[in-house]
């Protein structure tokens, strides 16, 4: 046990690692944006009056939540090109993260929607608003507020899951670290450093979510 720490490769690679952090943020933000769109859209379809829509969303959620993310991302990256759809690693990663996060978001947001009292919906309808408007203007915001903590922790998970995208060499922190490590064999220093970097990234995400919460969900409730 005479391993001598040597942070020179980390210090030399710092610009690359920071660029990797940016890549991670890009994947996370892109994935979250897609996930929230899929989440909200999925909830609408999940409770639509067309059985086919409801069934399709159920099947989608089952499939995504019960299969490994790594397999999902491989499928999009390696299998879809056989069907003529070839995407670069970064868009692939964003789509995979969005689809995966979206499946979880559907279940979370649906819980929020179901927590809204029927009276709110009836008040909207009685005022002459159509169902779609009632959902968008009356139900959605309180529903998101109700589940925001769960949604935020799901999205922190999504942020950390971006590291799986290194498996298809998307540009993000873990793949940068792997490259530096394979060139310098400084595993402890390199992975120790990015561990801390991920911790900071998670904290920054949480701070971001607190800001959103304070900005959009701070209306008083009983």
């Amino acid at each position: 046990m005479n391993y001598v720490l040597d942070f020179t490769p980390v210090i030399d690679g710092l610009p690359d690692l920071l660029a990797g952090c940016l890549g991670t943020f890009l994947l996370a933000l892109g994935g979250m944006l897609l996930a929230i769109i899929i989440g909200i859209g999925g909830v609408v379809l999940r409770d639509s009056r067309f059985p086919a829509c409801r069934w399709a969303v159920k099947a989608f959620v089952e499939l995504i939540r019960n299969t490994p993310f790594l397999v999902q991302i491989f499928f999009i990256y390696f299998a879809l090109p056989l069907a003529g759809l070839r995407l670069d690693p970064t868009p692939t990663a964003i789509i995979a993260l969005g689809i995966n996060g979206g499946a979880y978001a559907i279940e979370i947001i649906r819980g929020g929607v179901q927590s809204i009292s029927k009276g709110q919906i009836e008040a909207g309808l009685a005022l002459g608003l159509h169902r779609a408007l009632v959902f968008r203007l009356i139900v959605l915001k309180p529903a998101l507020r109700a589940v925001f903590p769960s949604l935020a922790s799901q999205f922190v998970m999504l942020t950390l899951t971006t590291s799986v995208a290194s498996a298809i060499s998307a540009y993000e922190l873990t793949s940068v670290a792997q490259r530096i490590e394979s060139e310098t064999f400084r595993s402890f220093e390199v992975f120790g450093t990015i561990t801390l970097m991920y911790l900071v990234i998670s904290w920054m995400m949480m701070a971001f979510f607190s800001l959103i919460s304070a900005r959009y969900f701070s209306y008083p409730v009983k």
Partner: peptide, 22 residues
């Protein structure tokens, strides 16, 4: 149970439907 919309001010509660439905 009143069913006011909790995420809107009193004024917005009253403006919503006239603007969006009418």
């Amino acid at each position: 149970h009143f069913n006011l919309f909790p995420h809107m001010s009193v004024l917005r509660n009253c403006m919503l439907a006239p603007m969006r439905a009418l």
